[in-house]
Write a protein that binds this DNA or RNA. Structure first.
Lengths: 278, 278
DNA sequence: AGAAGGACCAGTGGTCCGTA
DNA sequence: AGAAGGACCAGTGGTCCGTA
């Protein structure tokens, strides 16, 4: 609640059932209050994004300020800053982010102020359960039934109190989760190797692409087939960059026209150049 | 071309290959020029929708006026009125609509200035072929591949010269096409009956719902399963109203909670009341 | 610096309603 | 009146970039 985002005010009022809360599976218990405490570092609020991107049709977001839902019920309800101009709630509390991920090996508990990769993968499982619930509600009411984790599912998760789940994060690491699903041994080995080398999460994340490209190669370079044939993975959209990497690799592999390959995917992935790797 | 709609100016320039043109399958040959002739009833142009719906974030549509594509190549290219304020092209030609549908029996050629139902169903087949082409292009370029007839497909069809295909029309009659696919005999019988009774197209269209609800009943009221298990039908979204009718019918059938059914779907469909039937 | 996520934007599904 | 379809709109997929 305390919707900063206008989209949260959709018409369909989702049931407020508590569902399974955070509770990390990676070993740590993750007391929600840890990062939801309404009185943390005082600095912040009314900062407002002063961003200067194209910003065309805003204006739809105006007037969406005073929250209509009441209070309580949302365990340690945060009251972040409001979105629009002067209606700021000054005595407000602050936004708390999730702790950053670090590369952990399977079963390893992350140190203080960090989250481990078991917890990351657990979030994907949580999203799947939220999807299952959204699907059940949709069928019950005769609505069309999502087969993927959509915006609607993220919105439902938020309403259900899972404020630590958000779309950009989940999309960012989908391919890491994919490797975990498709080849857990390889995934575990990669985690151990990168932990040992003291690599950061970004480096590990990048490294997850290549094994997936290789798996797709064994399925005629069709990464969609790879995703869709795994029950836990099929509910996630194939990330754009992974799709592109598989396409490039298939071209270079010469199953297509002779593109006079300038290098294998391995080199591309290892080089760090090219905007596919940002 | 002569895009009235801003969406038509998408970045991806689709190849201008001619593809299969109109050419009705119903027997009539449908010379395109019949309803694409650039000099027809002179009245019209610069009329602009003065509509007063909510109209919030427009403004994005401005400046999108001067067409960038050249000329010719689009056989009998129409040059309808342009979209925005003063840049009207006055010597312009006029919009020509498709002739309205009438209820015809299978194989029957519609009389002048009318289109028959074989032609209607042929349009669905044309859309399928456009989808197949869009899919081939997507795979070729490593883009995500649509499984349904999406906006992208309609845009592609327009670019390919099929100006007689548009989304509202195709969506409007999807369930009629569904019946044609799923039970051609029943569909044919319905057409004959409604033709005999001299019913208009709207009445025939309404009548197509009930047989479909009955078919869904035999598949556990799951209309999605019904659509998806037919190869030509699975590329079409289930229409909202059909989904709602199946849901209501399943409730009334008592497979669910006893809703103290106030009437069967048959009565609902026959009554003409209730906003599900508009 | 590396990373989490609010908020944005182009293009989608869906269909209304001004038009013929 | 009955019907075809341009154009609109709310909510989507995707991810940038101001923030911590």
């Amino acid at each position: 609640h305390g919707s900063v985002n206008a989209d949260a005010l959709s018409q369909e009022v989702l049931s407020e059932e508590p569902v399974q809360e955070a509770a990390g599976s990676g070993g740590e218990t993750r007391s929600r209050t840890g990062w939801l405490c309404p009185h943390a570092n005082s600095k912040s609020n009314n900062k407002k994004r002063t961003n200067s991107r194209n910003k065309k049709h805003k204006g739809r977001l105006e007037e969406v300020d005073q929250r209509d839902e009441g209070e309580a019920d949302d365990k340690g309800a945060r009251g972040w800053e409001s979105a629009s101009s002067e209606t700021e709630r000054d005595g407000g509390s602050e936004r708390q982010r999730e702790h950053p991920f670090i590369v952990t090996e399977p079963g390893e508990v992350a140190r203080a102020k960090k989250n481990g990769l078991d917890y990351l993968f657990h979030l994907y499982e949580q999203c799947r359960l939220f999807l299952v619930q959204v699907q059940a509600l949709a069928r019950q009411h005769g609505h069309k039934c999502p087969t993927k984790v959509t915006n609607q599912v993220f919105r439902y998760a938020k309403k259900a109190g899972a404020s630590h789940i958000n779309k950009p994060k989940m999309r960012h690491y989908v391919h890491c989760y994919a490797l975990h699903c498709l080849d857990e041994e390889a995934s575990n080995a990669l985690r151990k190797a990168f932990k040992e080398r003291r690599e950061n999460v970004g480096a590990w994340r990048q490294a997850c692409y290549e094994p997936l490209v290789n798996i797709s190669a064994r399925h005629n370079w069709d990464i969609d087939v790879v995703f869709n044939s795994h029950p836990r993975l099929s509910i996630w959209y194939v990330p754009t960059k992974l799709r592109q990497l598989c396409h490039i690799a298939s071209s270079n592999a010469g199953t297509n026209v002779a593109t006079a390959g300038t290098g294998t995917v391995g080199t591309i992935l290892g080089s760090g150049s090219g905007d596919l790797l940002q």
